[in-house]
Design a protein around this nucleic acid. Structure first.
Lengths: 233, 233
DNA sequence: CCAGCCTTGTTACAATTCGTAAGGATTGGG
DNA sequence: CCCAATCCTTACGAATTGTAACAAGGCTGG
């Protein structure tokens, strides 16, 4: 995995600057936005690892945004808010935020809390050589899929990349852009159909019913989700 | 999973009592200890899901304990400390704590933060979430509605967003504006008629009688109300 | 009660996005 | 050089979703 990406959503330029400086100092990539609309537009292209969100936004209800983020995106959501009442913090956390930091804040603490979130999220992603999921065993060293009856189906390198990405991020929305980024093909425009083809082929090897896929689910306009209970060994 | 187990390590009896009460109120099992030695002995027998640790312990260095805990145990570690300096918080988090709460604290916030840890970034998509209501079962992981006869009707992502909003706020008035906020309202604000279409399509999938809707009721000039007895599982 | 205005429901259509089959480029082995 | 495997590209059909247009129904002032 590359260096984690942190997005900042705050309408005060000064706050954005402080956070951006501190985060880049700490070695993260950052993107900052002043409006929810631009922020949400960017989510269609990139999936961040952590989202820092200010609740008092001019153009939307921050809490609703946080709820949606927590529900749909795989990113950790940290609220940074001027509202310091206990009730605010509780509802923010209940709606799905992973942490709640009150202004004024110390950048060092923000960085530490981001690190804590990334540490926690990264842990279960130990990618090994084989993974078991829903009646299948994927052997990445031998490039083949094994079903529970012992039947073996080989998969290619390109298919393996997609499969690995899915198995390392189960039950999380993976945007098309993230996929392109994660799988070598960074620069290209008409390239996007190649992605579909890879997924299509993977689906047939997993014997998915095209009408009703159970493992690789398409979210129209957003990306894919791999359902399935994954265990790495 | 059974009800999560939370262990408390603090030398002040009053703190232990407050936390124990709040946590059991919230439905967790608890164990509390006043000394690190007893606490560590207990770890050989049971593995808690969350550990609340006070740093100022008489018989050991709290930070070192936290560090060991974070490394060895799978549990989330939350520091509860009287030391409120930024530097304390940063080092606590850097050493592996997942959260840092300063005294005095509000029990409600502690519970909320524990919940956030348990919810975890591990399964970001609320997987396996299904809701039952009035003869229907909505499977949000598989994007389909099931009626009591086993008939299945798929629903799309956009329809699912509306349905989820209804099921999360049953028997409450949901204004049109709230709906726009809660759903992807940020993208195209120009026409709110998209909302109506989404609801219309959802209604047909729920086999609502247009003349006499039983589940999704329109409040003229105000919004919608979802009637129906919802149970989440 | 009624005409007119506003809100909402529904249908049809178009733009975008996605699935997959077919063909060609590339690679590597013999 | 040929063959097979792999994988990108192209092309076309299907699905999803927003938009427009129109119909239906509620609300208000008279």
């Amino acid at each position: 995995m590359t260096t984690p990406l942190v997005t900042i959503l705050d309408d005060e330029p000064e706050i954005r600057r402080i956070l951006t400086d501190a985060l880049e100092e700490a070695g993260y990539r950052t993107q900052s936005f002043s409006r929810a609309r631009e922020f949400e537009a960017s989510l269609k292209r990139v999936t961040p690892d952590v989202c820092l969100v200010d609740l008092s936004l001019p153009d939307t209800d921050g809490l609703a945004l946080v709820h949606r983020l927590a529900l749909e995106q795989g990113a950790a959501v940290i609220i940074i808010s001027g509202r310091a009442q206990v009730q605010d913090r509780v509802t923010g956390l209940e709606l799905g935020a992973d942490d709640y930091i009150t202004k004024p804040f110390d950048p060092a603490e923000v960085v530490a809390r981001i690190r804590a979130r990334l540490r926690g999220a990264r842990a279960p992603l130990q990618s090994g050589r084989t993974a078991r999921f829903n009646g299948w065993t994927a052997h990445f060293d031998r490039y083949l899929l094994e079903d529970d009856d012992g039947g073996e189906t080989p998969f290619s390198h390109a298919e393996g990349e997609v499969l690995r990405l899915f198995l390392e991020n189960p039950k999380r929305l993976i945007s098309r852009a993230t996929m392109q980024e994660s799988l070598g093909g960074g620069a290209g425009e008409s390239f996007d159909r190649a992605m579909d083809v890879r997924i299509s082929r993977l689906r047939t090897k997993l014997r998915e019913d095209p009408k009703n896929p159970r493992l690789i689910k398409t979210i129209y306009g957003a990306g894919y989700i791999f359902l399935g209970d994954v265990g790495w060994t």
